[in-house]
Write a protein that binds this DNA or RNA. Structure first.
Length: 421
DNA sequence: TCTGGGGTCCTAGGACCC
DNA sequence: TCTGGGGTCCTAGGACCC
């Protein structure tokens, strides 16, 4: 048995926790750069505000409806997520964290008779410990548990728990779930299924598996099996090492200023290098890309990318920065484009231990490794960027907009919540 | 002024080898 | 008339997720 526990309107719930005056009001959280809506409170959903709405197009409607607008505060959400996960983990021997706001719990070895009650207990404890409301779906496969969770939110709002305990309940749920609401069915597959007269998850379970295999590849077939109650998605209790790591951001505004772009690229490269070191891996290739704003249809467009092979696989900040700048210099074109976004991606990531040394490599890698270890230690203790490469600068001139940022209530002493008595 | 950022997996098809 | 065939590796692109 699988339980999928999912925080309700997670980012919006986090914002309300520390500003009780927001409770009951429509609230939206915006993406990086205050670009578009990525989370909504229940009240905002009720107003019909859609995911992905560009903030600048919705400003009038926000004002008219007295909507609270927040920039995204990942420090706060990340810390709240840790707290929620810790509480959930206390109920089961094993748990798979699936995303910042949801986790699969392994119920297979529990002697708990009444899983409905377990679901309620999880919900109550999480809200008591963290203040975050969650919903619980319980079923025989991951895909069905996801669906049960969604069904709990829709049809069992007051309890917030749905346990698809027998065939009839599974059937009822499958019949009530539209194909586009199945986990793993996106826009394209939904269109295909609709075109073939399939409207609900139940319809999908009734067609032959080889049709599914032919039209939706092996991932589709796995999904089909899961709907039929045959577990086909494996547990991943330990997060796998990333195979590629990408860091990218939009600039605050369009630019063709080489020094600003170089600074941004250097910072993205440094972030990638740090992520590599955190999972004890190295990369063999570094890719940089730089692109214009595709929404500006009247401006000249480009999406330039270049992959550079490392002499020796590496996770060193200065080396990855150097490769990235080399790449940038090859594609940057000051005269023809105004750029909106750039990024660095490290490819072909392998464990540090598998590193093959290049016989022509003359660098003293042990020495630079020690220096990086010290740098990481200091940065962990004193905050990111305390020690950095000169090219990363200190003033962050490509800084993103975040005009409505809440405090980091739970991780910074100087931003802790204050109560006036 | 203003439209996110990060990932994964799978497949088709080209390049290349003998 | 007839223009090999089988295999691997790599990449681009499409699908999906939160």
């Amino acid at each position: 048995m699988f339980a999928l526990v999912d925080c309700n309107n997670f980012y919006a719930s986090c914002e309300c926790l520390f500003e009780p005056k927001y409770i009951g009001r429509p609230l939206v959280v915006l993406s990086n750069n205050d670009g578009c809506v990525i989370a909504r409170s229940q009240e905002a959903k009720a107003l019909g505000i859609v995911m992905g709405t560009p903030a600048h197009l919705a400003q009038d409607s926000f004002r008219k409806n007295n909507v609270v607008v927040c920039s995204s505060n990942y420090t706060l959400y990340g810390d709240m997520s840790d707290r929620v996960m810790k509480t959930m983990k206390s109920f089961v021997p094993r748990m798979e964290i699936y995303s910042i706001d949801e986790a699969f719990l392994d119920l297979s070895e529990l002697s708990f008779e009444d899983l409905d009650k377990l679901g309620l207990a999880i919900r109550e404890t999480v809200i008591k410990n963290t203040g975050i409301p969650v919903s619980v779906g319980i079923a025989s496969t991951k895909t069905l548990a996801k669906m049960a969770n969604r069904y709990a939110k829709k049809k069992h709002r007051s309890s917030g728990v749905f346990y698809a305990s027998d065939e009839n309940l599974v059937d009822e749920m499958l019949g009530a779930t539209a194909v586009e609401d199945i986990w793993g069915i996106g826009h394209q597959y939904a269109l295909l299924l609709r075109k073939n007269g399939l409207a609900t998850a139940k319809d999908l379970t009734r067609i032959p598996g080889d049709w599914v295999r032919r039209n939706m590849s092996v991932t589709g077939l796995r999904l089909w099996n899961e709907l039929l109650g045959v577990p086909s998605k494996e547990w991943e209790f330990e997060p796998k090492d990333k195979k590629n790591i990408c860091t990218s951001r939009s600039f605050g505004k369009l630019t063709n200023d080489y020094s600003i772009i170089k600074e941004a690229i250097s910072n993205h490269a440094a972030t990638c290098a740090l992520k590599l070191r955190n999972q004890q891996t190295v990369c063999r290739f570094v890719k940089i890309f730089i692109s214009t704003n595709p929404h500006k249809v009247n401006m000249k467009q480009c999406h330039h990318a270049i992959v550079i092979q490392c002499e020796t696989a590496t996770n060193s900040t200065p080396e990855i920065i150097a490769y990235s700048i080399k790449g940038l210099d090859l594609v940057f074109d000051k005269n023809n484009f105004l750029y909106m976004k750039c990024g660095v991606e490290v490819l072909d990531v392998i464990p540090e231990t598998e590193l093959q040394l290049n016989m022509f490599d003359l660098k003293d890698r042990n020495k630079s490794k020690k220096a990086l270890e010290v740098m990481d230690m200091v940065n962990k203790e004193w905050g990111r960027g305390t020690i950095r490469m000169a090219v990363q600068r200190f003033d962050n001139r490509y800084r993103l907009r975040a005009d409505f940022l809440s405090k980091r209530f739970t991780t910074r002493l100087d931003e802790i919540i204050q109560i006036h008595i």
